[in-house]
Design a protein around this nucleic acid. Sequence first.
DNA 1: TAGAATGAGTTATATTATATCATCTGCTCC
DNA 2: GGAGCAGATGATATAATATAACTCATTCTA
Lengths: 167, 167
Amino acid sequence: MKTPAEPLFTPPPTTHNHQQCVHNALKTAETLCVERGVQLTSIRHQVLELIWESHKAVKAYELLDRIKPLQNAAKPATIYRALDFLITQGLIHRVESLNAFVGCRCSGRQHEQLLLICKQCEEVEERTASQVMQALAEEFQRAGFTAHSKAVEVHGLCQRCAGLSSE
Amino acid sequence: MKTPAEPLFTPPPTTHNHQQCVHNALKTAETLCVERGVQLTSIRHQVLELIWESHKAVKAYELLDRIKPLQNAAKPATIYRALDFLITQGLIHRVESLNAFVGCRCSGRQHEQLLLICKQCEEVEERTASQVMQALAEEFQRAGFTAHSKAVEVHGLCQRCAGLSSE
DNA sequence: TAGAATGAGTTATATTATATCATCTGCTCC
DNA sequence: GGAGCAGATGATATAATATAACTCATTCTA
Ligand SMILES: [Zn+2]
Ligand SMILES: [Zn+2]
Ligand SMILES: [Zn+2]
Ligand SMILES: [Zn+2]
């Protein structure tokens, strides 16, 4: 059985109702954590909310600065612990090539990811890209490699930014 | 038309003449730098040599420690400058997910790369994986994305390590 | 109530990377 | 020869990212 070539989630449109976007993400997170019997504590929730403020990847120390008004005692460990939790629960992704973090749009399951990172507007678009993952799987087969994580990060220009710069 | 399924270069065999391997890499680097009119200075050469000591990815500060006997004055900037140069010349790759550096086996041209990173033995195998890159290109098309860099890093177990652990 | 599990506070430190300014070396141009 | 330039390196400082180790509080439960 093969491949619905379509992404399993709606990619972020160039302009969209971001409030809705955030609301969905937070709701999903809350539900999942209840289902799993893990605690989406106040700090963790706040960090998740801050990450979802935009579709840009956010740095840990930016989050620290932004959470301090809310959590006066916040220290680096505060943030990194929350980030660990959120990553483990599949609610955010770490963008290795930026040392930064971005909300996951297909939350709740561990999954393969293709991250398209725009150099201009800095937004990160997550795509399922099952054909890419299929090709990767075949390559592992040839190489005798057993993959534990597939993270594909690509830097470039998103459609909108490419359009603007060519006009 | 589809697919020579074979990699375009010889992957590192489980056991191989590594001296030869290093010798080739250094020779190639020397030649390319002459051709390009850039200077493969003593420090840069030493750093490249240290990186090629194994097929594992090496950290910048490891390189710093290892180069100190040779370059007494070496400081972080010494290493990072050499690394910048080597990356720009396409002689090494930065492994984003490890903050580390590995020799490039297909030196001299900027190119797409698939890095298979073994969690056990820590070796990094570089593959051309043209089918993966093709699938990626098609995905960019669909997403309207203009890629500037394609770096695919996958963590898992290499054939040898997977074999050993299953025996 | 003792003991385990989890989350968070606190302090300190480790690791990774860059900024800035000074110096040196080889080269060109006059 | 000497002024001027470019590229590489020396030297000092600091920024940015991340973890360790120990403490305490809460909750659950045996
Ligand atoms: Zn949105
Ligand atoms: Zn963009
Ligand atoms: Zn070798
Ligand atoms: Zn291995």
